[in-house]
Amino acid sequence: MSVSIYHYNDYKEFYNAWVANQPREGFGEYRRLAQALNVSTTMVSQVFKGDKHLSLELASEMCDYLRLIEDETEYFLLLVDYNRAGSFKLQKHFLRQIKSRQEKSKKLETRVKANELSGEAKNTFYSNWVYSGVQMLVDTGKFNDAETLSQHLNLPRNHVQKVLDFLLDNNLLVESKGKLKLGMARTHVGSSSSLVTRHHMNWRIQSMTKLQQNRDEDFFYTGPMVLSHEVANWIRQELPSFVESMNAKLIPSPSETVRCLNIDFFEY
């Protein structure tokens, strides 16, 4: 999450900042949240653009939707309590707790940079597809230890355990109540990074392996083509739009299955 919840005393301001940070500035986000909470879009709008407040029950469901970890969930519910408080005395009580948790988060941030991996950790993470692969598999909730992951991936258990240890040490995964979950740290490699070529190659090698298995649920397309410059430019412009539209649906969707999409379009 690139928007830190601990920077906010108002849960509405936090969520609206989170929305603004999503692809296409969160277009359609209120509708998606309403569907997740099983309430009307009007109700969501009245809460986050008006004076209404979430119930604690809906707030708890919203924490799951936002994929907040345990500490973030407790803080979000505290913000709801604070904003719903009916007296100045009660507000002061909750505000003291808010300030305490904010100070705690600052101390944590001095030990672990929450939103971005260090250069050395990035080099490790992008050295092999298995790091992001294990992270995504854990997010489905179906894999919670090295044994089940090693069986699924057909990799040595000790190797998978080292990957898990790395992800936990770098806050890419966290353990909460005996369960592994996504941590606050995030990874991104831009087109100008020296790691981007390795990132593409890692997953294309996996793609070649899956191609040989010829499974019905997979889809591969190779289309050498001769075409006009106009159509070639149109395809080049449409691909980023497709990725943007895909991400708008992908980000709020529940983690149920892990897939990899590789798109190659180039002139030769």
Rank of each mutant, 00 (worst) to 15 (best):
S55G: 07
L56C: 08
E57Q: 15
L58R: 07
L58C: 08
A59Y: 10
S60I: 07
S60W: 12
E61S: 11
E61V: 12
M62H: 08
C63E: 00
D64M: 09
D64I: 15
L66S: 04
R67K: 11
L68V: 04
I69K: 07
I69P: 06
I69A: 13
E70F: 11
E70V: 15
D71L: 13
E72N: 02
E72V: 12
T73M: 10
E74T: 09
E74Y: 11
Y75H: 04
Y75G: 03
Y75W: 06
L78R: 08
L78V: 02
L78M: 14
L78I: 01
L78P: 11
L79T: 00
L79V: 02
L79D: 01
V80Y: 03
V80R: 08
D81P: 02
Y82P: 07
R84P: 04
R84L: 10
R84S: 02
A85H: 10
G86W: 12
G86V: 03
F88Y: 13
F88T: 15
F88S: 15
K89M: 06
L90P: 09
L90E: 15
Q91M: 12
Q91W: 08
H93D: 14
F94N: 13
F94A: 12
F94V: 12
L95D: 02
I98L: 05
I98K: 04
I98Y: 05
K99G: 04
K99Y: 14
S100T: 04
S100C: 11
S100R: 10
R101L: 02
R101F: 00
Q102N: 09
Q102V: 01
Q102F: 05
E103W: 10
S105G: 04
S105K: 06
S105V: 02
K106A: 00
T110F: 00
T110N: 03
V112I: 15
V112L: 14
V112P: 07
K113P: 01
K113H: 10
K113S: 03
K113L: 09
A114N: 06
A114S: 03
N115V: 02
N115R: 12
G119W: 06
A121F: 01
K122Y: 08
K122G: 04
T124H: 14
T124E: 13
F125R: 04
Y126I: 00
Y126D: 01
Y126N: 01
N128I: 09
W129I: 06
V130T: 11
V130I: 15
Y131K: 09
V134W: 00
V134H: 00
V134P: 05
Q135K: 09
M136V: 04
M136C: 08
L137E: 01
V138M: 03
V138N: 00
D139F: 09
T140I: 05
T140Y: 08
T140P: 05
G141Y: 00
G141W: 01
K142D: 04
N144M: 10
N144W: 13
D145G: 15
A146F: 02
L149Y: 00
L149C: 03
Q151T: 10
H152N: 11
H152M: 07
L153S: 03
N154V: 12
L155A: 08
L155Q: 05
L155T: 07
R157H: 06
H159K: 10
H159R: 13
V160Y: 02
Q161A: 07
Q161C: 01
D165W: 04
D165L: 03
L168N: 05
L168M: 13
L173K: 10
V174S: 12
E175A: 11
K177D: 15
G178P: 04
G178R: 06
K179D: 12
K179G: 03
K179E: 06
